[in-house]
């Protein structure tokens, strides 16, 4: 079966006065139907821009300058504006960290949901659309949806607003949802509710999910596969269990070690010294070289390409996987 989404060597660059920021620079990964893929990495590593590129939300001075995005085997770049419009919002939808990116503060929740439904199905009657909207709110755990949908977004708490935006994202039963830090602003118990609803909905509708976050522990709990980004590239990807229990890329290893965990209480956390280089000023070779404990001469001249290390895992490091390959 073809993957729902295939991203091949995507390059999205920002042409700023200070120079070209290669925010996404050669990203490739697939998402299959019903699969949850976690996209993690430091702030500024290109996670959101990857999602925005798929959604066609990259604004000037940014531009997709290379690669392909395929949806169910069809190249998005070759689609007509109408096809694209129905794709985004109908077949693919996006959830943001701030639900107000989706919600209009001056319209009742009901109005917004009915409009979203009618925009993609002009034959549906208003009352039918209302029923669907109400049921969608019920599905994400909003009690008394009939009454609640007459309220304005500001009359909801943060967690409820996020659930409304999830309900809107699910309205047209999309094949793919891109969720950008959907629970980062929420409290633990509310985060649990939101994750629970999304897990359930995706399972029922077989919707694929790209979950963007910097929180490794959240990804560990929900994803089937994980992609780890650093400075615009996916440096490691693979099945969640093996990648977490045995990370291979030095950055992924450092990242896992720096997450506090119950069985390492009292010991210092592993830390990655130094900081992320500026995207405007990336070094020749591996972008992680200034922070890497395994750095060697090769890293300073060679840009590591993705190496298949077996077990459906890809790693971008000149010092990992070579032994298996040779």
């Amino acid at each position: 079966m073809k993957p729902i989404l295939q991203i091949e060597n995507l390059q999205t660059h920002f042409f700023t006065k200070a120079g070209v920021a290669k925010a996404v620079d050669g990203v490739s990964f697939d998402i299959n139907a019903g699969e949850v893929v976690g996209l993690v990495g430091e702030s500024g590593s290109g996670k959101s821009i990857t999602g925005f590129s798929v959604m066609g939300l990259v604004d000037a001075p940014g531009r997709i300058v290379g690669g392909r995005i395929m949806f169910k085997g069809a190249d998005i770049a070759a689609m007509s504006p109408q096809e694209l419009q129905s794709l985004r919002g109908n077949r693919i939808s996006m959830i943001f960290q701030d639900p107000m990116m989706t919600l209009n503060p001056v319209l009742r929740v009901e109005t917004q949901m009915v409009e979203a439904i009618k925009a993609h199905d002009s034959t549906i009657s208003k009352s039918e659309a209302r029923v669907r909207a109400r049921d969608a709110l019920g599905l994400v755990g909003i009690s008394a949806p009939e009454e609640r949908m007459r309220a304005y977004p500001h009359q909801f708490s943060g967690g409820m607003r996020q659930r409304v935006s999830i309900a809107i994202a699910m309205l047209n039963r999309p094949d793919l949802i891109i969720a950008d830090e959907p629970t980062t602003a929420l409290d633990v118990t509310i985060q649990g509710q939101v994750i629970h609803e999304m897990q359930r909905l995706c399972e029922v509708t077989k919707t694929a999910l790209l979950w963007i976050t910097h929180d490794l522990a959240v990804v560990a709990g929900i994803a089937d596969r994980i992609c780890v980004m650093y400075a615009g590239r996916v440096v490691e990807q693979g099945p969640i269990a093996s990648t977490i229990s045995q990370p291979l890329h030095p950055y992924t290893r450092g990242l896992m070690g720096s997450v506090p965990s119950q069985n390492r209480r009292g010991q210092p956390l592993q830390q990655i010294d130094g900081m992320v280089p500026s995207l405007l000023n990336l070094p020749v070779g591996c972008a992680f070289q200034n922070r890497c404990s395994m750095v060697s001469d090769k890293c300073l001249s060679e840009t590591p390409g993705p190496t298949d290390v077996g077990g459906k895992r890809l790693v971008r490091c000149v010092n990992v996987g070579q032994e298996q390959a040779s």
Binding site: G141, V188, T189, Q191, G192, Q193, I195, H196, Q199, D215, L216, A217, V218, A220, G221, I222, A223, D224, I240, A241, I244, M256, V259, S261, Q262, N263
Partner: peptide
């Protein structure tokens, strides 16, 4: 409700 790295994939049972 705390997500934990060492627990791995699981079903969330919300409050």
């Amino acid at each position: 409700g705390v997500p934990r790295l060492e627990v791995g994939k699981r079903e969330y049972e919300p409050v």
